[in-house]
Design a protein around this nucleic acid. Sequence first.
DNA 1: CAGTGGTCTAGACCACGGG
DNA 2: CCGTGGTCTAGACCACTGC
Lengths: 252, 252
Amino acid sequence: MSAMTKAGEPRYRRIAEELRTAIADHAYGPGGRLPSEEALAAHYEVSRGTIRQALMLLRHDGLVTSRRGTRRVVLHDAPVQDFAEMQSFARWARSIGETPQGTVIRQAWHPSNPDEQHHLRITPTTPVLRVLRLRHLSNRPAMLERTTYPEPVGAIVEPLPPDTVSVTEHLERAGISVADAEHTIDLIRADPEDAEHLHCAVGDPLLRERRRSTDPAGIPLEWSEDRYLPGSIAFVVHNSLASTPLTRHLNS
Amino acid sequence: MSAMTKAGEPRYRRIAEELRTAIADHAYGPGGRLPSEEALAAHYEVSRGTIRQALMLLRHDGLVTSRRGTRRVVLHDAPVQDFAEMQSFARWARSIGETPQGTVIRQAWHPSNPDEQHHLRITPTTPVLRVLRLRHLSNRPAMLERTTYPEPVGAIVEPLPPDTVSVTEHLERAGISVADAEHTIDLIRADPEDAEHLHCAVGDPLLRERRRSTDPAGIPLEWSEDRYLPGSIAFVVHNSLASTPLTRHLNS
DNA sequence: CAGTGGTCTAGACCACGGG
DNA sequence: CCGTGGTCTAGACCACTGC
């Protein structure tokens, strides 16, 4: 929504946007049927292939079904949350009407440990920047973030003011953008450090999200372990036969 | 791996499978570069479009990168877990070498409550089948599952023996298959019923997964709330600019 | 049976990366 | 500058759904 449709955007993305809006405006459903691909192609004056690309986006977002033989069916209303919002705590907070804050508690360069070497795919000799950051949601502590950056990214993060609200947005301005991320979600107990900063008791349960982000070339940009106070957050995943990004693992 | 390449499978899927195997055999990387689309098209004797469909699959699984201007780069080794395994507790358990078990504790038809009506998209008058099921992993209690089925599915589930290991597989045999699912993951405290069956204390933290599954036409097949003992499980999500199924929500 | 989405082809041009 | 992937076209045939 908002931002005028950018001219530089590929045609199929703009069409997907229009369809999203139409669906959000209940032009078809839910439960309603979309026009056929043929009809959409005629309407937008593009080839069927382009329409299919647009529909693929809606499909992966769980907005419409797709079955051979039948018109596409509109599912529930749009969740409308994008990659940028998942990637950035600050952006997410703003999108739900909360005020994000961040405070760096500790930050220093260290020789990387084996765990970091594995996740960031670096060699043992390389130093990394470790940052401990407390995140607030509208003045209440919500999450404690332990992030490790490899050298080039760390060099950009290090000089930022300790109360920087969005590190991600600074990195983007520096030309560093995230293309992929892998998240592991489980439950953990607060250690003394967690307890101190999140104002909870040692041993209290926390929701843990470990995350590795990579750039478009597949080079790791950060390895982070975030611990959320319970009650403040839930993670929502959509998956389908078409794309299955969610897996279940034994905690080891 | 294993199963002979089915002839009925579309060409691009078979190619994706071959590429997966090649990657798993470290034919290129990790860090290595895939042949160009042009070269792959020539090798498999298909058009570039078909190759791109195959590569799209690997892309969504986070197996390879893709950037204009450069060859695709192989990322980490294959996670190899598919939709079927995420959808079925029994299949997942077997895939990690554990023995799954299930016991129905309670099962009965009820008039649907507003929550169920919303998630299953049914009218207030429709009855639903509520099932309380305890899941074991190699003889240890691992998860307590509260599932609600709408009428047609419930009618199939009801007569199953209480110790049925895989309900999903029975449904498939009856021609009912899941195409989409939405999962919400958060943290919750054990209530007396949880505590009794999971052999934990009331108030102990549990990892909760709420799930709605729908069939290819978008019709809800089940609404379930699963509570896992901590330490036994983690959820892993992969997302990218290309597809973002993961979102973060305020718990309300 | 007609209509629809799934697969596939053989081209084309462009935007970007890296030498 | 060249090679690469990203976008797009205009066709074709098939598999399936639902009448």
